[in-house]
Computed example of a mutant assay.
Amino acid sequence: MKTSKVRPVGSSNVTPEVIAAWKAEYPKGIWELEVDGKKAYFRKPTRDELKAAMVLMAKNDPIGMCEDIMASTYLGGDEEILSEDEYFFPAATEYQALLEMKQAEIKKL
C-alpha cells in the first residue's frame, strides 16, 4: 500500500481537511489514538505489513512487532506516541483493536 503524502507533524496540524484526505486515500478507515493529550493517526495495516510484523513476533519480539506495525501505519500527529515509552506502551495496547479480525467458522461436512 502506498504511504500517504499528507503527513502532518503534531496533532494540532491535523485539520478536518487532512482527515478528509486520509479518508479518501484509505477507505477502510483511519483511527485517532490518544494518550494523555497526545494524538496520533493510523490506518489499518495491509497483509504484507502484518506479515512483516509477525516475523518479529515469531522471533519473540512483541515490542518490535508493535513498533514496526505502528510505524508502518502511522499517518501523522504527535510523534511522541511512537518515540516515547510513556506514550508508546499504552498506545500499543489500544492499537490492537486495529488488528481485530472477523470471526471465521469451519464445519465438518
Rank of each mutant, 00 (worst) to 15 (best):
V35E: 04
L99S: 09
A58E: 12
Q103W: 01
M1C: 08
Q96K: 11
G64P: 09
E32H: 05
S12F: 10
A40S: 04
V18G: 00
L109P: 13
I69R: 04
V9G: 01
S11Y: 07
A20S: 14
D36F: 09
D48R: 14
Y87L: 00
Y95E: 04
K102D: 15
T46E: 04
L75R: 04
L50I: 10
Y95V: 12
Y26N: 00
M101D: 09
I106K: 15
I106H: 15
K107S: 10
A20W: 06
D68C: 07
F88S: 00
P45T: 05
V18N: 03
E49C: 02
L98V: 09
L82S: 00
D85T: 14
M54C: 06
F89D: 06
E49H: 02
R7F: 08
P8V: 01
A40M: 05
G29S: 05
P8S: 00
M65G: 11
E34F: 07
V55Q: 15
S11N: 10
L109R: 13
P8I: 04
E80C: 02
E49T: 02
M70N: 03
P27A: 00
G77H: 06
A71V: 07
D48S: 12
G64E: 03
D36Y: 09
S83W: 07
Q103I: 08
E100H: 11
E25T: 02
P62V: 04
K5Y: 08
W22I: 01
L56H: 09
A40F: 05
L56C: 01
G64R: 14
M1S: 15
A53F: 03
L56N: 07
F42H: 01
S83M: 11
G10S: 02
N60K: 15
A21I: 08
Q96W: 05
E84Q: 15
A91G: 02
A71H: 11
K38P: 00
P27E: 03
M65A: 14
K2A: 11
K51R: 14
K51T: 14
E34K: 15
T46M: 01
T73A: 02
K23H: 04
E79V: 13
S11M: 10
A71Q: 12
V18A: 04
E67C: 13
D85K: 14
F88I: 01
Y95P: 02
L33V: 05
E34D: 10
S72F: 05
G77I: 09
A53S: 13
K102A: 14
A52I: 06
T46Q: 03
D68P: 04
V6K: 14
E25G: 00
S4G: 01
A104H: 14
I30W: 12
M101C: 09
A104L: 11
D36P: 01
S72T: 07
A58S: 13
T15V: 02
E105K: 14
I106S: 15
G37T: 05
D78I: 09
N60W: 10
A24R: 13
E80P: 04
G37S: 04
A91W: 07
Y41E: 00
L98R: 03
V6S: 13
K102H: 11
A92G: 04
L50D: 07
S12I: 12
E105S: 15
E17R: 09
L99M: 08
L75M: 03
F89E: 09
D85L: 11
M101E: 12
V14F: 03
M101Q: 14
K59N: 13
D61V: 03
F42R: 01
E25N: 00
E32L: 08
